[in-house]
Design a protein around this nucleic acid. Structure first.
Length: 196
DNA sequence: CCCTGATTCGC
DNA sequence: GCGAATCAGG
């Protein structure tokens, strides 16, 4: 497989959405995550808004600081009719005030306890914030799509259609993604350390 | 062991 | 330019 325009586009899009290299590779097919990562680097778009595994690398001590300008403006591509090019979503910019749709707007019914939904008890505000942030990127997968490797954090009210699972990649063994593990497994004494 | 991205280097 | 192998880390 070669990096056609389309494939590169998909790569950019997904990478921008925060998808992992392996997920992108899987989506594209015919390539491994290494290929994806390699391409990402060659394209100059490496760092994203916070990665999981090993992001920031010293990159050795190369005395050749290469600033990467290359904004790479994209010339308008006009074909027959104005095809709805694409809806580039702004990467981690601002928190975007909850654009909740009417459906999702549904307020929590007082009485029926929602799923695990942390009783907002002693959960660190930052953790909760992280969760709500993550929920925006959630894949919204159905129960059928859950695997050993997807976050099984339920979002919404199971009694309505307004329900889905996070679906983001879960970490080894754990049933939830990083963010949800944070609020799911609160030791006993909430926070303690904090880095970054 | 699962996963993540980063880097290297032969092709 | 490409990407497997390797590295480094969670």
């Amino acid at each position: 497989m070669s990096w056609t325009d389309e494939r590169v586009e998909t790569l950019k899009k997904m990478w921008g959405e925060g998808q992992s290299a392996s997920q992108i590779a899987k989506e594209l097919g015919g390539v491994t995550r290494n290929a994806v990562i390699g391409k990402v680097h060659r394209l100059g778009l490496s760092n994203r808004a916070g990665t999981t595994g090993a992001a920031a690398k010293p990159a050795a001590a190369s005395p050749a600081p290469k600033p990467k300008p290359a904004p790479k403006p994209k010339p308008e591509l006009k074909t027959k009719a104005d095809a709805p090019v694409e809806k580039e979503i702004e990467p981690a910019a601002e928190p975007a005030p909850k654009p909740m749709s009417a459906a999702r707007r549904q307020i929590i019914p007082a009485g029926q306890p929602l799923p695990p939904q942390p009783s907002a008890n002693e959960i660190p505000a930052e953790a909760l914030a992280k969760v709500s942030e993550v929920e925006k990127k959630a894949k919204r997968i159905s129960v059928m799509e859950l695997t050993e490797k997807t976050c099984k954090w339920p979002i919404g009210d199971p009694a309505t259609e307004d329900f889905w699972f996070c679906g983001l990649p879960s970490q080894a063994g754990k049933p939830y993604c990083e963010a949800h593990v944070g609020v799911a497994f609160q030791p006993m004494s909430s926070r303690r350390d904090r880095r970054r």
